[in-house]
């Protein structure tokens, strides 16, 4: 029976924000195709997550609850997803374009000989064939791609590009429980430990990003950037210059060879705005530039600019936000 499947990525029983965004888009695609929306919930002890999937728009849930599925590992997850696709032939399979989501759907698409539209910003299901917009060449261009309408079409969805539905706690539905395909002794990869990055907001999920560039000058120079980020509940970003100079670790890098982000608000501090950096942040809703050089290219992209020293501006800005936000 035909359906739209959405994989609900979870970490320690908590859904990735983009999973609900994918489910929200899945709702629209399912309605366009006139088929039910099925959430795939894999894990160990994930009853609450299955219930939550209905709140976010699922008609049905396929739940696999087993110790082999506690943490995401490609082998057991892909074996199960590919079996579900082969047995039931869904029209569409969606997931968030996270590290795990991109890997899982790529592998399963190969298993089932299906087309995959990866990391898409827009998705349409007109006439049965999925058409998507992707960001290519490190965010410098867009491309339109289409998947063949026969068989199952897979797509992974960029974080923050789609909207989750408002949760409706009165919704519920039918849960089908399925067994894993692989047993522990058939799984070769073992997870030995996990060190969570605590207290930091992930760049790709952040609604606000405060970024520092070369002018930050030292690892300590990021302190005022972090202080503003903390008041705003924002993630901390950086330009390649700041990362290459060793002021901050690579996982903060925004740009063509870092992360491509699109927050509601992007505050660029001491960043000149090289084309590689612009590629990573130009789809932000509002851009603010703080730089001593009035000729810096970043001002061509920004809506608001302050031509002044970031070490003067940032503390003043942090104080002002504290006042206005009552912190």
């Amino acid at each position: 029976m035909s359906a739209v499947y959405v994989w609900i990525e979870q970490f320690k029983g908590k859904a990735a924000p983009v999973a609900w965004e994918a489910l929200g888009k899945g709702r629209e695609v399912a309605d366009t195709l006139g088929v039910p929306l099925t959430a795939l919930v894999f894990g160990e002890g994930v009853d609450a997550l299955a219930a939550e999937a209905f709140h976010y728009g699922a008609d049905k849930v396929i739940q696999a609850d087993d110790s082999t599925l506690a943490d995401y590992r490609m082998e057991p997850y892909a074996a199960l997803l590919s079996k579900l696709v082969e047995d039931n032939g869904p029209r569409v399979v969606l997931a968030g374009a996270t590290s795990r989501g991109k890997e899982l759907l790529a592998v399963s698409a190969l298993d089932t000989g299906s087309g995959l539209l990866a990391d898409v910003l827009e998705l349409e299901a007109d006439g049965g064939a999925l058409t998507a917009t992707r960001s290519v060449y490190g965010g410098k261009l867009l491309s339109t791609v289409e998947a063949a309408a026969d068989g199952t079409q897979y797509a992974t969805l960029r974080s923050r590009a789609f909207q989750a539905l408002e949760p409706d706690e009165s919704r519920s539905g039918e849960i089908t429980k399925v067994d894993p395909v692989l047993t522990e002794d058939q799984i070769t990869v073992k997870i030995e430990s996990f060190e969570e990055t605590t207290g930091e907001i992930s760049l790709t999920d952040a609604a606000i990003i405060v970024s520092g560039g070369r002018a930050v000058g030292s690892p300590e120079g990021f302190a005022p950037v972090r202080a503003l980020a903390e008041v705003l509940g924002a993630a901390v970003g950086a330009s390649r210059a700041a990362v290459d100079a060793g002021y901050i670790s690579y996982d903060h890098q925004v740009g063509q060879t870092g992360k491509v982000v699109s927050p509601d608000l992007y505050i660029a501090c001491g960043i000149s705005g090289a084309i590689q950096h612009q590629a990573g942040m130009r789809t932000s809703k509002v851009i603010v530039a703080i730089n001593t050089d009035p000729e810096a290219p970043i001002f061509k992209l920004a809506q608001y600019g302050i031509v002044n020293d970031m070490f003067q501006v940032l503390p003043a800005l942090t104080e002002e936000f504290k006042k206005r936000l009552g912190k």
């Binding site: 000989g113 995959l116 261009l141 867009l142 491309s143 289409e146 998947a147 600019g305 031509v307």
Partner: peptide, 24 residues
């Protein structure tokens, strides 16, 4: 294998409208 996806076209990003307001 026969391709299951195909590229239709490339396009430029929408131009960001408006001037930067420099706050003085």
């Amino acid at each position: 294998p026969a391709p299951k996806t195909r590229l239709i076209a490339y396009r430029h990003l929408p131009v960001r409208e408006g001037e930067c307001e420099i706050i003085e």
